[in-house]
Amino acid sequence: MRFLTSGRRHKAARPLLLLLSLFLVGAVYAAVSPATSSSAEGVADAQLVAAGKNLFAVNCASCHGLNAEGLAQQGAPNLTNVGAAAVDFQVRTRRMPMANPLTQAVPGSKTIFTDDEIKALAAYVASLGNGPAIPDQNQYDPSNVSAEGAARGGDLFRTNCSACHNFKGAGGALPNGVVAPRIENTPPEQVWEALRTGPGQMPVFAAGAIPDQDVQKVIAYIKQVNAAPSAGLSLGGLGPVAEGFWAWVAGIGSLVLFAIWIATRGTRA
């Protein structure tokens, strides 16, 4: 379940990190890309798992071990029971592969794998044990949630999510440099996967307590509350701290400028 490292090492020099990730990208494309992308469609499960195993050996095994058993001193967790959903979430959001053990896996801009490669990796990890599968659309799709359902989703959101992710999903602080990320625009599928697999420090919210229908309601609420028009610029949804900042800068600032204009003498002849 614990996909990301809880290592306590601090950030290495940024240039080094950049070089490493560049190297990784290059390595992945050189080693794997031609082999799988052309033949992924229509192959049998066994082939998919085999392709995934290859990908895993190249991209993941250095930390998680050749058989995904994890490596404690790297902070890399055992992956035998995390399931396909966790792989899909971590790799698709570019949290994984991590270039370096950090405090927290942070999402990158774009995954370095193709859809087929992600499927193969997920199929391989899923074949190792029991864990949630990649969800079907009917598990997470919020389009059938009624207006009342979305309001109920809001109640669930404020009870279970806003403590870390803030009242509209703008994110928040956790101890020791960990942050709860912004989730205003997270795709529904990834919200579902995050709830079920508990990435990083986030707890699991399993179906026994929050069934799929409730997850859909929460997703519908996040979508609708962020799509609704605001009553002015929303200051990043950060609450009273940002408001106080603007009261001083925009309010007192502009009024002092006016006061200076009022009290200075105009040009003299």
């Binding site: 707890p203 699991v204 919210f205 399993a206 026994g208």
Partner: peptide, 12 residues
């Protein structure tokens, strides 16, 4: 809440 439904790492 059923005890058997709760997974390790779960928060309710």
């Amino acid at each position: 809440l059923k005890a058997s439904d709760l997974e390790v790492g779960q928060l309710v």
